[in-house]
């Protein structure tokens, strides 16, 4: 039941987040410092220690500060109680509503940081047969119960290497929507090399969202995103991405890049992508073995943090002049967002979300594919390992002791179970390097909200 706050100062703003209510307060410097000196329950009169701590401020004004602090506390907007253990009963085995379909375990690129071992996930290079794709749809319908909205992501490897299957699976799923009262939302992630007008038109007609993989500046991109012969891919894919986005109109898309130790000035890559005409941008830190030359390590964090703050300031200036763009990880809905249950559950991998390999094997998510011990079923015999599913049911924030104590838990939802497994050897133990970057991004996102609020008030 204990309340929790997180306070930080950035870009001249003093900000206090009340963790359990989600309230965000922009305060002045005295109020900010005062929070270090007093603890709830804030009963009775202003403590003498506060008067003594600020001798330059009149007793009357200090009393005013304290009464504002008490008012927030009593309104449950500061140190508000943690009722969330009451939701533990809602962490149950749920219908499967999202599926990652690995239509190709092969790729025409050999990106150095690829978690999928450059496309084959550590196995043989294979394509999913159409029949397996259709069985996957049957599997999703069977295990989705009464869920209406279903998501299917065409993934790889490189999914455009098996595009006829993509078309067939979409047609098949659409043919079943009405009879089963389902709404399929298709998405696709592509490196763009094989895009042509036929594929672009199909994607723009059928895909609810599309992710276009590019890392930013040509020299940055081509250093790590190389073809099989070692040559870069930037010049080939960028015109195709531009054409897709131009023809897509208002449809959702993201250009999505990875930054590594080689480009800790990644704000330049974000700006480059915007300069090239994209306004929906995500550039994210690589997750890699710390011994690799491109991996980000704890030593890199000060530079990465400074760059996030620099990007936040640039984005603010751009929004001010009407030339803003969306940077994925600085987007935050402070007024509503998802429900508390969703925030505690997170991605739902292994419970509401599964991945299917070209052979029809079912895994908790795309990041677990290739790790045989995590296989949890097959679309061939419509099987699912309920014991494994139950393990993921109990991998919510409430089950992660470190996460329960963290101020960011309702925004990151316990992080990525696959990364936890890979780097902390336990799905319930957070991969703390990623946590630190997530927390910095959240602080930047909240600061942007504070600054925009100030400007709109002044404007």
């Amino acid at each position: 039941m204990t309340g929790m706050i997180h306070k930080f100062s950035q870009n001249g703003y003093y900000i206090v987040l009340d963790v359990n209510s989600g309230a965000v307060h922009v305060v002045d410097e005295v109020f900010y410092k005062m929070l270090d000196l007093v603890q709830p329950p804030f009963a009775g009169d202003c403590p003498e220690a506060l008067y003594a701590a600020f001798p330059e401020i009149s007793r009357e004004e200090i009393g005013e500060y304290y009464s504002e602090l008490r008012e927030l506390y009593e309104a449950e907007q500061l140190y508000s109680p943690d009722y969330y253990d009451d939701l533990a009963g809602k962490m149950i085995s749920a219908p499967v509503k999202a599926m990652c379909l690995h239509v190709a375990h092969d790729c025409n690129l050999r990106c150095r940081y690829c978690f999928a071992s450059t496309g084959d996930f550590g196995g043989t290079r294979t394509m999913m047969p159409v029949e397996i794709g259709k069985m996957a749809i049957d599997y999703l319908i069977k295990y989705s119960g009464s869920r209406h909205n279903l998501e299917l992501d065409f993934f790889g490897g490189e999914p455009t290497m098996n595009f006829e299957l993509v078309k067939e699976v979409v047609r098949y799923a659409r043919s079943l929507e009405k009879a089963h009262n389902k709404n399929f939302r298709f998405t696709i992630t592509t490196n763009g090399i094989l895009l042509d007008d036929d594929k672009i038109d199909f994607i723009n007609k059928e895909m609810f969202n599309v992710v276009l993989s590019v890392d930013g500046r040509k020299e940055v991109n081509d250093r790590v995103r190389a073809r099989v012969d070692g040559s870069g891919c930037y010049d080939s894919m960028m015109p195709k991405f531009k054409r897709l986005v131009e023809k897509r109109g208002d449809g959702q898309y993201y250009v999505r890049g990875t930054f590594t130790k080689f480009n800790k000035d990644f704000a330049e890559d974000v700006l480059h992508l915007n300069q090239e005409g994209f306004d929906q941008i995500s550039v994210e830190p690589v997750v890699a073995d710390p011994n690799l030359d491109y991996a980000l390590t704890w030593d890199d964090l000060p530079e990465v943090f400074a760059e996030y703050e620099r990007l936040a300031k640039i984005l603010l200036e751009r929004k001010k002049t009407g030339t803003g763009f969306n940077f994925f990880h600085f987007m935050l809905d402070l007024d509503q967002g998802p429900c508390a249950v969703k925030r505690l559950k997170g991605c739902g991998c292994g419970n509401e979300y599964v991945a299917v390999t070209p052979d029809g094997d079912v895994y908790p998510c795309h990041q677990f594919v290739g790790h045989e011990e995590w296989k949890m079923g097959s679309v061939l015999d419509l099987s699912i390992d309920e014991k494994k599913k139950e393990m993921f049911v109990h991998s919510s924030v409430l089950d992660k002791p470190e996460c329960k104590k963290c101020w960011a838990k309702f925004y990151c939802s316990g992080g990525c179970n696959a990364n936890n497994m890979q780097y902390a050897r336990n799905i319930l133990t957070p991969y703390t390097l990623a946590c630190e970057m997530e927390k910095k991004r959240l602080e930047c996102a909240i600061m942007i909200k504070a600054a925009l609020d100030e400007w709109s008030t002044e404007g």
Binding site: S21, H25, F31, E64, Q77
Partner: peptide, 12 residues
């Protein structure tokens, strides 16, 4: 409030 501005309606 004089020293605090709350930005949002604030999740449940």
């Amino acid at each position: 409030m004089k020293h605090v501005k709350t930005l949002n309606k604030a999740m449940k």
